[in-house]
């Protein structure tokens, strides 16, 4: 446990000045600010629609969630998996990392956990900023109806689903980035996978849920459909989330087996 903890602290120390770390913070800040600014600048038009609180929140948070879930989320996860491993490939530091008196599992698990943590921070910030900026909008445009409805449950559930459904992609990309030191192979495969995921998910192919890349889209789609009705009724643990978690667990173990057998040349 101790070596896992120090490996994790070291991961943070190493990456705190890199884009990978700051992306986790900048991405939600930029996107949420843009959406909120849109709602602020176009308040006249939106107010004409006369949305009740629930629908206003659904439109407002949906604007962020749809962009995020469809496109940015898979790429963000692919990028995280890449950059956590690339920091060692780029500097040729695998050999020193594995020559430290730490067990190999800790080194591997800390890297994986760190990527999970960054994605978690990113999504938690999305949820928190959506909530916070929504209330800020209410304060600056008093005619809005944000205060009529408390969106915390729906926000929590949506982002929790997005988070869990993206872990499958993370594990898969993590292995690709671990094995290949270059940018193109994991990114290329990730790109093709993501496109495939989007296409199969939007075509409603019945086995789309078996492709890890389509899981965030699928997980969010159900949220969207049901949020028209009773938004609180949807489950976090649906088929997509379970599939994602199974992928994540199996690939995590395979990744470790690769690391433990890997000779550092």
């Amino acid at each position: 446990m101790r070596s896992l903890y120090i490996s994790l602290v070291s991961e943070f120390y190493k990456s705190r000045k890199t884009l990978a770390f700051w992306a986790a913070i900048l991405l939600p800040v930029v996107i949420c600010s843009l959406v909120s600014f849109g709602f602020y600048a176009n308040s006249d038009k939106i107010l004409k629609m006369g949305y009740p609180g629930l629908l206003l929140w659904a439109h407002y948070s949906g604007a962020t969630l749809n962009v995020m879930g469809m496109l940015i989320m898979p790429f963000y996860v692919i990028f995280m998996a890449f950059s956590v491993n690339n920091i060692e490939h780029k500097n040729d530091t695998w050999k020193t990392l594995f020559a430290q008196p730490l067990n190999k599992f800790s080194i591997y698990a800390a890297k994986y956990l760190y990527a999970v943590l960054l994605i978690f921070i990113c999504l938690a910030l999305f949820a928190a900023l959506t909530y916070g900026l929504g209330h800020l909008l209410q304060a600056s445009v008093p005619k809005y109806t944000f205060n009529e409805y408390n969106p915390s449950t729906i926000l929590f559930n949506s982002y929790a689903k997005l988070f869990l459904s993206s872990l499958g992609i993370l594990s898969l990309q993590f292995i690709l980035s671990l094995v290949w030191g270059d940018f193109l192979k994991p990114m290329g495969i990730g790109f093709v996978g993501t496109i495939m995921g989007i296409v199969t998910a939007s075509l409603n192919w019945q086995y789309a849920y078996l492709i890890p890349y389509s899981l965030p889209t699928l997980a969010l789609r159900i949220t969207k459909v049901k949020s028209g009705g009773d938004p609180l009724a949807f489950d976090i643990f649906t088929k997509e989330v379970y599939t994602s978690l199974i992928y994540a667990a199996v690939l995590f173990v395979i990744g470790y087996l690769i690391v433990s057998k890997k000779s550092i040349k």
Binding site: K14, K17, T18, N91, D92, T93, K95, T96, A99
Partner: peptide, 11 residues
């Protein structure tokens, strides 16, 4: 140990 060229985080 120092193996081959030193392994240093350039950033």
């Amino acid at each position: 140990a120092l193996v081959e060229q030193p392994a240093i985080y350039g950033h």
